[in-house]
Design a protein around this nucleic acid. Structure first.
Lengths: 99, 99
DNA sequence: GGTAGATTTGACAAAATCCTTCAAAACAAA
DNA sequence: TTTGTTTTGAAGGATTTTGTCAAATCTACC
């Protein structure tokens, strides 16, 4: 149930790597990576894919973590958050079926 | 399972009102309302509230419709759409419980 | 305390996105 | 055709996002 940030911070600390190293791989300033790890900034899709590659974990898992973070952020502070998520789920299921 | 746009278009057409009338109530250009009804533009929170007021329907229902539209838009084209929505749901439930 | 490396913060700029207005085009009904 | 409605897209402004950089803060060790 970790956020994307928490996940990659743990991975990075397990390997005892400085922000600098991972940031260089992503080709961004370490300041941004610091903010991503602490949930202050959103990562881009491409950055998530590179992170999965770097840490050798399943891309899909990290994308789910990233996308769900964005969804949680979108409904934050809304009373109807849960309801909206459930309705969105139904809408997506319906669309899928239509194809 | 209608989108916000479809919902308010139906309401408006049932009452046989032109875009102009509703747009004036919202204090926006009718072009924008036209786009909102057809899902080309996102409505603002305030606009949704005014729309509920105008059509005398439950604000909460319209907010759920609006928010879920935004969520669907956010996960569109993602293979992991459904999974992400489900994980987001769990994250929201977890946060709620923590309070 | 002092030093070195790592991390965080915030100001700033560039780029991208969003929002609105407006006028013209398209459409519908008579 | 005329009138009223709706849709479209260009243009501009405003807002948000994205990144850079340097200074400040933190941490560990001597």
């Amino acid at each position: 149930m970790d956020s994307l940030g928490e996940t990659i911070r743990k991975l990075r600390e397990d390997k005892e790597l400085p922000l600098r190293t991972v940031a260089a791989y992503l080709d961004i300033d370490q300041a941004i990576l610091s903010k991503i790890e602490r949930g202050q900034r959103n990562a881009s899709r491409e950055q998530v894919i590179k992170l999965a590659e770097f840490f050798k974990i399943k891309e899909t898992d990290l994308l789910v973590s990233w996308l769900s973070d964005k969804l949680v952020y979108e409904v934050a502070d809304e009373d109807v958050a849960l309801k909206a998520l459930q309705v969105a789920e139904e809408k997506v299921k319906y669309q899928k079926q239509k194809k």
